[in-house]
Computed example of a mutant assay.
Amino acid sequence: MHLQDFKTVGRNTHAQNEDATLNHGSFVHVTVVAENEAALRSVVYSDPILVDLTPPVISVIKDGGDEEDVDFQQSDVITLHWNVTDDESEVDFCEVALGLSPGSGEVHQFTQQPSLYSATFDLSGHLTHGDTVYSTLRCHNYAGMTSHVTSDGVTIVTQPPNSDHAIVETMSETQSYFPSSAFHQSTDDVIHLSWEGFFDVTGIRNYQCRVTGPGLTDFPWIDVGLNGQTHATLSGLHLHGYNRYDVHVRAVNHGGMVSDDVTSDIYVEIERPLVMGNRFRSWWPQQGVMVFDWTGVFLSNSSLVYEVSMGTKAAGTDVMQWRETEKTEMRLDGVDSNKEHHVVITAVNQAGLCTTGSFVLSYPGSG
């Protein structure tokens, strides 16, 4: 293919043609003819010149080592690896800039690297916890073409997560109609827990929890929340009744650094209140006024709440229904002393377990 006829350039030792149409990957051959005053000529042929119209191809760029891309690290030494090729004119050199946003260079301006495959920068004293460093790579081939690409960044992690505002709560499974009170449960083989308030600007990778208490001195830390959950269930436990256990939770960031643990306690009570029916007392201080006392009737290892109903027949509630109290004495006015009264008292402990006692009251001398 003919690109240009011979053109005189006088005594110049250089020439150029800006109108030629070149095809990528083709070879250009240049012929120079020199002629003196005696019309004698010499002809010189150049080596073939490869036409390269494309920049280098950067196929891979990775923060960190050459095995896999790193998104988080504790070190202030930034390492970059890449793969660049140019099948036509080959890669001449590469430059790298570092910044805190993609494509920027405020941390380190573009500098030519001695290697065509990697670069390392020691930024000690220039980075803080939570900084994300983006590396921008710019490679040039021998044809003067340039390509560039920016890494997805690596975040510097130098501090553990903060737990100053974190809280941990235990959640009990209901074993009866009545809910358990805070920090109490009636199951001895499982603990449900939730947490919130752990914070790390670099993000939380997962959480860890453990239980300590009687019989659990060697209980290990267990990884939980691997997919962002802030709750967990610990099952297969062997908790001892009437004992207090501590539930510990801590956060782990992407650098593997661990926060201080936050603790909540749980009291295990697995038995219902006992009934001592012969201790129930009642009296009529005056006509139409009834007082009854059940102090000591119900025995429990935790404080009790009572639900009291009264009727004029067994299991009836025509006088009073489901009145809740923490006291063990009750006074009722306007009670018909000519009728027999049936009292039903349900004692509920802090774990939500309950026991019911039934008692019959009548006015002395009635009937």
Results as ranks from 00 to 15, higher is better:
residue 265 D to F: 13
residue 175 Q to K: 05
residue 37 E to H: 09
residue 302 S to R: 00
residue 357 G to P: 03
residue 358 S to R: 13
residue 361 L to Q: 12
residue 89 S to F: 08
residue 31 T to S: 12
residue 161 P to S: 07
residue 356 T to C: 03
residue 314 A to L: 12
residue 222 I to V: 10
residue 249 V to G: 01
residue 329 E to P: 02
residue 30 V to H: 09
residue 211 V to A: 02
residue 343 V to N: 05
residue 296 G to P: 04
residue 334 G to Q: 13
residue 365 G to Y: 02
residue 289 V to T: 14
residue 231 H to R: 14
residue 19 D to P: 01
residue 237 L to F: 11
residue 107 V to G: 05
residue 202 T to L: 03
residue 279 R to P: 01
residue 101 S to Y: 01
residue 267 Y to R: 07
residue 13 T to M: 08
residue 27 F to L: 14
residue 249 V to M: 00
residue 77 V to R: 14
residue 164 D to K: 12
residue 118 S to G: 04
residue 33 V to P: 06
residue 28 V to N: 10
residue 337 S to V: 13
residue 48 P to V: 01
residue 241 G to I: 07
residue 309 S to G: 01
residue 357 G to I: 09
residue 354 C to D: 09
residue 45 Y to A: 14
residue 117 Y to Q: 15
residue 254 H to W: 14
residue 75 S to W: 01
residue 152 D to M: 00
residue 298 F to C: 07
residue 329 E to F: 05
residue 196 E to L: 08
residue 296 G to N: 12
residue 124 S to I: 04
residue 344 V to N: 13
residue 341 H to E: 09
residue 43 V to I: 15
residue 336 D to C: 09
residue 123 L to F: 08
residue 35 E to H: 05
residue 84 V to E: 03
residue 112 Q to P: 12
residue 272 R to P: 10
residue 24 H to Q: 04
residue 261 D to V: 00
residue 107 V to M: 14
residue 302 S to I: 04
residue 18 E to H: 05
residue 167 I to F: 01
residue 35 E to F: 02
residue 222 I to H: 08
residue 98 L to W: 08
residue 361 L to R: 14
residue 258 V to C: 01
residue 222 I to G: 04
residue 4 Q to M: 12
residue 124 S to E: 10
residue 309 S to E: 06
residue 30 V to C: 09
residue 49 I to N: 10
residue 23 N to H: 00
residue 282 S to R: 03
residue 339 K to S: 05
residue 51 V to M: 04
residue 145 M to Q: 15
residue 61 I to K: 09
residue 13 T to P: 02
residue 106 E to M: 10
residue 274 L to A: 13
residue 223 D to F: 03
residue 80 L to N: 10
residue 230 T to C: 00
residue 200 D to H: 06
residue 189 D to A: 08
residue 353 L to D: 06
residue 285 P to W: 05
residue 351 A to D: 13
residue 179 P to K: 07
residue 46 S to C: 13
residue 26 S to A: 14
residue 301 N to F: 09
residue 308 V to P: 03
residue 256 G to N: 09
residue 291 V to H: 02
residue 212 T to Q: 08
residue 29 H to D: 14
residue 102 P to E: 15
residue 85 T to P: 11
residue 40 L to W: 03
residue 115 S to R: 02
residue 286 Q to I: 05
residue 2 H to I: 14
residue 183 F to S: 13
residue 255 G to C: 06
residue 179 P to Y: 03
residue 104 S to I: 11
residue 293 D to F: 10
residue 228 G to W: 00
residue 71 D to E: 11
residue 323 R to Y: 14
residue 25 G to R: 09
residue 288 G to A: 15
residue 360 V to W: 02
residue 194 S to P: 00
residue 93 F to H: 15
residue 214 P to L: 06
residue 17 N to S: 07
residue 142 Y to F: 15
residue 195 W to Q: 07
residue 181 S to D: 15
residue 356 T to W: 00
residue 138 R to L: 09
residue 26 S to G: 13
residue 151 S to P: 00
residue 260 D to L: 04
residue 274 L to I: 10
residue 349 N to C: 04
residue 298 F to K: 11
residue 229 Q to V: 07
residue 247 V to S: 01
residue 150 T to F: 01
residue 314 A to I: 05
residue 88 E to W: 08
residue 26 S to E: 15
residue 2 H to F: 12
residue 261 D to F: 08
residue 101 S to Q: 14
residue 5 D to Y: 11
residue 161 P to C: 01
residue 178 F to Q: 14
residue 353 L to N: 13
residue 10 G to F: 02
residue 72 F to T: 04
residue 363 Y to I: 10
residue 60 V to M: 15
residue 359 F to W: 08
residue 149 V to S: 11
residue 57 V to G: 07
residue 52 D to T: 05
residue 237 L to R: 11
